[in-house]
Amino acid sequence: MAYQIPSDIRNGLKVEMEGYPWEIVYFQFVKPGKGTAFTRMKFKNLINGRVNEGNYRTGETLEPADIETLEMQYLYNDGENFLFMNQESFEQIPVSQAAMGESKNFLVDEMMCRVIVYKGTPVSVELPTFVELQITYTEPGVRGNTAQGTNKQAILSTGASVGVPLFIDQGEWIRIDTRTGEYVERVKK
């Protein structure tokens, strides 16, 4: 069933346009003084993250995207693909490097993730919003310097690099916001 504008429109709706799946991330009623009503929408491309916007007239329709979101656990990287396991069916599916994208920077074994599957193929992976990772290398910490700015680089156990404050030491654990890829706080382990 096609989605009717404006009655079916809500944030989070997944629609098919120009050969891509998109998620509605913003919508707003707009009506020029003497014209018909439109709904202004912003769409996030679920494959490449690009954001698009457009105005849709009342009475137009949008096609639902053939997309599902699966809660899956990360198992391991076989050198080519990232393998995830469906927690209900115990089926294992491979996710390509391209589909993992930036998410691989903060991925650790056994992490529960949301795998976005479009027309039967995994196209992206959403990590938990916050993840805790250990620092494998950084310049020695500066004691007494409690400035919160991220003033030096640290290498994480996943191999990714993030900015951290000067007081952080090698071997410590930190919390990362996976939406921005930025340091949040030190974690005591």
Partner: peptide, 19 residues
């Protein structure tokens, strides 16, 4: 490309590009 009446097409263009 998506409208059949001139006024609807005008307003979509207006909302998309001008306003």
């Amino acid at each position: 490309s998506r409208d059949s009446t001139w006024d609807d097409a005008f307003f979509r263009r207006w909302l998309d590009r001008i306003e």
